[in-house]
Amino acid sequence: MLVGYDVAALGQGVPPMADYNIENLKFLVVDDDANMRHLVTTILSSLGVRNTATANSAEKGFGQLYDFDADIVICDLRMEPLDGLEFTKMIRNHDTSPNRYVPIIMLTGHSELSAVEQARDAGVHEFIAKPVSATRLYAKIKRIIEHPRAFIRTEDYFGPDRRRRQDPDYNGPERRKAK
């Protein structure tokens, strides 16, 4: 299991090992590029998902969450006028947010990896560096299913635990211990 787990975590597109039926999961796809919305919803539909909502802006996506009880949100980092970071912060922190714990998968360009740390600090669960493929997207969905994250509230952060406590191979810095 360990090999499949690690490789999937790196997003290298190696097929994950558990076979989940995800048809009952509800997805909200938020991207200001209509073609990307079409691509992502087509992939989800091909994976068996039956209930997907879309929005072409962060504001509309946030509004959708009031009526649509999404299990997972997929959004693009670069959107206008509000980007994916601001969208994530709205979901996590806005007073009226209807679903502040919803897992968020963020799509990024491969030259935007420097934004990953920022996105993690905004409260994103997983990232996919474009190009998007069915295998990569499913690997991230599977990871969210198998490794639910605790949420942390501090004075300056609310969102999923940024340490991967369930990851036996995590060898990054221990943020909590940092002084």
Binding site: Y20, N21, N24, I72, I144, P148, F151, T154, D156
Partner: peptide, 20 residues
């Protein structure tokens, strides 16, 4: 900030919704 750290475990509904 970590001095005032609160850990919340949201209900995990995803596992209940997916079959294997």
């Amino acid at each position: 900030a970590d001095d005032k750290l609160e850990v919340i475990n949201p209900p995990n509904t995803l596992k209940q919704k997916v079959g294997t």
